[in-house]
Design a binder for these strands. Sequence first.
DNA 1: TTTTGAGTTGTTCGA
DNA 2: GTCGAACAACTCAAA
Length: 454
Amino acid sequence: MTSRSVLWFRRDLRIGDHPALNAAIEQGDEIVPVFILDPKLIKSGGSKRLAYLGQSLRELDNSLGNKLQVIAGDQIEVLHELKKKYNANSVHISAEYEPYGLARDAKVEAAGIELTRTGSPYAVAPGRVRKPSDDTPYKVYTPFYRAWCVHGWRAPAPTPKAIPVVDADSANRNFPDWKLPEGVRITSAGEAAALERFKHFQKNGLANYDEARNLAGIDGTSKMSAHLKFGEIHPRTLLAPLGDSKAHDVYRKEIAWREFYADVLFHNQHTETDYYAPQFAKMRYDKPADQFKAWCEGKTGYPFVDAAMRQLLKEGWMHNRTRMVVASFLVKDLHLEWQLGERFFREHLIDYDVASNAHGWQWTAGSGTDASPYYRVFNPIEQGKRFDENGDYVRRYVPELSHISGVAVQEPWEHPDGYKNNYPKRIVDHALERVESLARLDEIKASKPLPPTK
DNA sequence: TTTTGAGTTGTTCGA
DNA sequence: GTCGAACAACTCAAA
C-alpha cells in the first residue's frame, strides 16, 4: 500500500533548501502538499500582500506539477479530512515561533493531529541563542549577533531530485483570485523570482551594500524581505555565499536583525502589541486625528516622509531607511503611539513580518531593544539631505515637487516655487515637536518606580 | 558581587 | 560647509 505524508505549507513556499519537504519525501512514497486558506490570515492580510501570496502559491504549484491543494477552511478539519482521504500517516511542517503560529499549531496538535517539525524560517531557531552566563535570552543586539555567529547554522539543504506528489481533486484547488488595487505595482513573487533577485544582488549590490543600503533613491538593498516573509527563500541560502568583508558582514547583520527580533518576540510574546519597555505605556500620547491621516496619506509637508509613505501605498514596500524616518515622525513629531503605525504597516507591507514590524517600531519609539543611551529623534529634513542627497527619491514619489531639482527638493519652504503645485505645508514644526517629545520622555523618567528596598 | 566596557541606523552646536 | 565634541548619563553583558 502506498504510504503518504502531508506537507502543510505556511511560510515556506519553496521546494529548494526545504528540510520539512525533504523529511516528508523521505517518510512517504507520495506527498500531499497543502496550503490552507485560514480565514483569520485572509482577514488580516492587506490587499497588496494577498495579491503577492496568490502569485506565490501559483509559482509553488508550478514547482509541484500543478498538484498543490489549496483549501479554504479550518486547519483541523482540513488536515483531518486530508489524512483520512489519502490515508496519510504524518503531517510535516516547518516550525513557527510567533504568537499566532505557536497557538495555531498547538491547537492542531491538541485536536489529535501530530505535527512533525523539521526546520524553521530562521538560520538559527528562536530560543537557541542564549547568554552562556545564565542561559537567559539576549536583550542587546550586538552580543546576540556574536553569539548567533558562534552558534552557526547548517548549509542549505539539498533540493529534492524528484517530488512524488499525489494527484489533487480540482475541488481542492481553490486558488483565490486576489486583485491588486488600482495603480499599484508589486514585485514578482515565488521561489524563482527570489533566487533570480538574489543572484542580481550578489552581482550588483552586495559589494557596496554597507554604503548603498542607506541611500533611499537607489536600488541598494537586497529586496529579499517579501521573499523571506513567505519563505520563498531561506536565510541559509542568503548566508551561504557571504565572506568576511565589511559589506558582507553588514548584510549578514541585517539577516541577524530579523533573527534577533524573532528571538525577542518568542521570549516576549506580548510585545507584538504591548510595550517591551513597560514605562513607555505611561507616556503622554496624542489621539490620532487629522495629523495621523496626513501621515497615512503622505501629506505631512515633509518631503522625505511623504515620499516614503507614498512609496508604501504604491508598492507595498518601503526602503529601510525611510521606515525609521516615518516611524520616528509618527511617534516623536506627532506624539502618537507606535501601534498605530505598526497596524498601518501591517495593512500595507507585502513583507509584513510580525516580529520585525513590531520590534522595528518599538526600536524607533524608544520602547524597544535600542541600547543607545540617548533618546533618538530623527530629523526628517537632515535625513532627507543625507540619504537622498540629490532628491531623486522625493521626486519619484511626490509629483508636486518634481519641478525642484537637486537636494533643494527636501526643503520646498526655502524655494520660491516650492508650493506652486499645492504641495501641503508642514503640519508640525519639527524643532518644537522634538523638544515636546523630550519633555514627555522626562515625565516618564521622573515617574519611574523606585527600586525595591531590602 | 562589583566593575568595566560598550551599545545599528542621531542631532546640534560651535570652531 | 565640514568636522569633532557634546549631548546626558542608561542598561546590559561579561570579566
